[in-house]
Write a protein that binds this DNA or RNA. Structure first.
Length: 284
DNA sequence: CTCTGTAATTATCGTG
DNA sequence: CACGATAATTACAGAG
C-alpha cells in the first residue's frame, strides 16, 4: 500500500525503474528477489485496478507492458537456466540411483511407496533452488499475497508437498509462459524428468495442461475472443503480457480479462502448493 | 495435438 | 463423528 503512495498513482517512471530494480535484485540474491516480487506485485495489482477503472493513458499502459515484457524475458532466461541445471542434476541423480540399485539388486519399480524412498541424499528440495523459486513465484505476477515462498512460510524440516510430483514444475512453467502455455514435447519431457518418481507421464502432463488452460480461463478467452484460433490467441496474449504492438493496441477489457486469467492461474498454484491441515496428521 | 464434455475420484464444508 | 452436498482435479473419449 505505502509503496504506490499518494498523488500520482501511476507514472511510467515506476515501471521504468522496475527493470533496474529487478536486475539489482537478481544479482543480490533470493532475498532481494522476494522483496522485489512484493513491490512488483503491488505495482501490478494497482495497475490492474486502475485499468479496470480506465484511469490510465495508453502511454502508461504501453510502458507497463514493455516493462513487464523486459522483466518477463529476463526472468524467463534465469528460470530457463535453472531448469536446465536441475534437469541435468536430475539425470545425474537418476543415473546414480540406477547404479546403486544395481548394487543392492532389486527395487526398480515400486508402485506405491511414495513417502519412503529417501533417495540418496537431499531430503526434499532437489530441483528447487532459492533463486528459481523466487523467480518463478514472481515472474509475471501480481497477487501480492504470500505466495508460497519456501523461504519463510514453510521453513526447515518437513517441507511437504506430497502432491503429484509434477505440479510444482508444471505450474511454474504455466505461469511463466502464461502468454503461450503450450509446452513442446521436449519441454513436457523436461518437466517430467524433473519431477518423475515413477508415475508421471508426458501424457498425464498433457492432460494437466489442457485442464489448466481450461480452469484458469485461457480456453474461454480463446473461444470468445479468438474464435478458437490458437495462433491468434497467442499473438494476442503476447501483446498483453510480452510486448504491446502500437499498431494494434489491445482493448482494455480484453487486457482485464487476461489479467484475471493470470490471477486464476496463480491462485491455482497457490491453492495447490499451500500446506494444509492434513499435514499435521503426518508427523509422528 | 488440442478442445469440449464428462465420469470418477478426492478434498472440503456445513449440519444433525 | 458421520453424513451428504459441493467444489476441485484428473483422466479419457470423441471431434476437429
Amino acid at each position: 500500500m505505502e509503496l504506490l503512495s499518494s498523488t500520482t498513482p501511476y507514472s511510467s517512471l515506476q515501471f521504468q525503474s522496475a527493470t533496474d530494480d529487478f536486475l539489482r535484485a537478481v544479482v543480490a540474491g533470493p532475498k532481494a528477489l522476494e522483496e522485489f516480487s512484493q513491490k512488483w506485485s503491488a505495482l501490478q495489482k494497482g495497475f490492474s485496478l486502475a485499468t479496470a477503472e480506465s484511469k490510465l493513458t495508453q502511454q502508461t499502459i504501453s510502458m507497463a507492458a514493455v516493462t513487464a515484457n523486459d522483466i518477463s524475458i529476463l526472468g524467463q532466461s534465469f528460470v530457463d537456466l535453472q531448469v536446465q541445471a536441475s534437469s541435468i542434476e536430475a539425470s545425474l541423480r537418476a543415473e546414480s540411483e540406477a547404479i546403486l540399485s544395481n548394487f543392492f539388486g532389486s527395487d526398480s519399480k515400486k508402485p506405491n511407496s511414495r513417502l519412503s524412498k529417501p533417495s540418496l541424499q537431499s531430503p526434499r528440495h532437489p530441483t528447487s533452488t532459492p533463486i528459481s523459486n523466487a523467480l518463478a513465484n514472481m515472474l509475471p505476477q501480481e497477487n501480492g499475497r504470500g505466495t508460497i515462498s519456501m523461504t519463510e512460510s514453510a521453513q526447515s524440516s518437513s517441507d511437504p508437498n506430497p502432491l503429484p510430483e509434477f505440479i510444482e514444475h508444471a505450474y511454474k512453467f504455466f505461469v511463466a509462459n502464461i502468454f503461450n502455455p503450450y509446452p513442446t514435447r521436449e519441454e513436457k519431457q523436461a518437466i517430467v524428468d524433473q519431477s518423475n518418481t515413477g508415475r508421471v507421464t508426458v501424457n498425464s502432463l498433457t492432460n494437466w495442461f489442457t485442464n489448466a488452460r481450461r480452469r484458469c480461463g485461457w480456453a474461454d478467452i480463446l473461444k470468445r475472443r479468438c474464435d478458437g484460433d490458437r495462433e491468434e490467441m497467442v499473438d494476442l496474449a503476447k501483446r498483453v503480457f510480452v510486448q504491446p504492438d502500437p499498431k494494434r493496441p489491445v482493448d482494455e477489457r480484453v487486457i482485464a480479462e487476461f489479467m484475471e486469467m493470470k490471477e486464476n492461474a496463480e491462485s491455482m498454484y497457490e491453492r495447490n502448493t499451500r500446506v494444509s491441515s492434513w499435514i499435521d496428521e503426518l508427523d509422528d
